[in-house]
Design a protein around this nucleic acid. Structure first.
Lengths: 109, 109
DNA sequence: TAACTTTGGGAGGAAATCTGACATAGTTTT
DNA sequence: AAAACTATGTCAGATTTCCTCCCAAAGTTA
């Protein structure tokens, strides 16, 4: 049931490593979280944990910032992007549901 | 030239996370390093950094330990395994080299 | 029996991270 | 233009995480 998310999405990287991987400052990384561009998890003690996806996203963000795009614009873009993605997902699932109902097919494909 | 090793092999995970992912104690993880079963990198400050491959390897190790295999046996197995792998690699590269010399082919395939 | 293996746990210290605050140079809004 | 906001640096003080070194102990091997 719960899909075992790949390495890319596992939240296992601490902020210092993310700093080294992205070249951003810790301040910037925390700020982008504050502006809801990224969503690290937390350890029991409160330390942030990022995924490789987060790292990639941060590099995209860094590029846009360099181009003068403001965080709240970036956020809007991301929401648009996400909404589009969700609707595609829903459509796909609905079609799949129909197929399952009609033919009792198994899982994907 | 330098192959950009995949996420799986990037050394980005600190020992506390590895502890959580594997269920091993930090003590055990450090001990297996001492016994040369794993080779974490180090941060500038000296903290260990592991890869997902290391995590997988640690879980294999944990299984063998549970089966009563001793670390130095595990190490021997690993060296054998590695040697076999190396020889396969060498053979592959030699064949590739021949092809390149004969036909000046590009990269893989 | 002596030596080795494996693991736990503690001490003391250093590295890494956290939040919150103040500062500042630009930019945008009113 | 004044006020508000953006983006980032930096610092302080606290907390968490990690380090090495050491002693102990139960089990295993030589």
């Amino acid at each position: 049931m719960g899909k075992d998310l790949s390495y890319k999405d596992k939240k296992v990287i601490t902020i210092g490593i993310v700093r080294d991987l992205t070249g951003l400052s810790e301040r910037q990384i925390r700020y982008y979280e504050e502006r809801k561009l990224i969503f690290p998890e937390r350890s029991a003690g409160g330390s942030r944990k990022f995924s490789f996806s987060d790292v990639e996203l941060l590099m995209d963000i860094a590029n846009k910032i360099e181009d003068g795009v403001q965080t709240h614009e970036i956020r809007k873009e991301m929401l648009r992007e996400q909404k589009k993605q969700n609707q595609e997902d829903i459509r796909r699932k609905m079609i799949q549901g129909q197929l399952n109902a009609q033919f009792g097919m198994r899982k994907n494909q």
